[in-house]
C-alpha cells in the first residue's frame, strides 16, 4: 500500500516538474508575448498544481489533501485571469505580435 502511494506521488512529482520544464522551454521558443502566455498559463499552472497535489497525496491526511486541492483550485482560477489581464494590457499598450501571425480580426 505504501508503495502504491509512493509510486502515485512519484508520478505526480515527475509529471508536474516535466510540465514546468516544458512551460519554461515554451517560454523561450515561442515567437511573441502572446504565444508565450499560452505556455506559461497552461503548462505552468498544471505543473505547479500537480506538485501541490503530490504533497497532498504524499501526506495521506485528508485535511492536507483538501488544502492542497484548495491551492490547486486557486491557481487554476487565477492563472487565466492574470494571463488575460497581461494579454489585454500588452495589446492596448501596443506591443506587436510576431511576423508569423496569420489573422487578426481585431482591427
Amino acid at each position: 500500500m505504501d508503495v502504491v502511494f509512493a509510486i502515485f506521488t512519484a508520478i505526480l512529482i515527475l509529471g508536474g516538474a516535466a510540465f514546468a520544464l516544458v512551460a519554461a522551454i515554451g517560454l523561450n521558443r515561442f515567437p511573441d508575448v502572446y504565444s508565450r502566455m499560452h505556455a506559461a498559463s497552461k503548462a505552468g499552472t498544471v505543473g505547479s498544481g500537480l506538485l501541490l497535489l503530490a504533497v497532498g497525496v504524499h501526506s495521506g491526511e485528508l485535511s492536507v489533501l483538501a488544502r492542497a486541492l484548495a491551492g490547486f483550485f486557486f491557481f487554476v482560477l487565477t492563472a487565466p485571469v492574470s494571463a488575460h489581464l497581461l494579454a489585454i494590457a500588452a495589446l492596448k499598450a501596443g506591443y506587436s505580435m510576431s511576423d508569423k501571425t496569420v489573422t487578426n480580426e481585431m482591427e
Binding site: A20, A23, A24, L27, V33, R36, M37, A40, G44, T45, G47, S48, F75, S82, L86
Partner: peptide, 10 residues
C-alpha cells in the same frame, strides 16, 4: 512579466 509570473509557479 510573463516570465516572472512563471517563476512564481516554479
Amino acid at each position: 512579466v510573463v516570465a516572472l509570473d512563471m517563476l512564481v509557479g516554479i
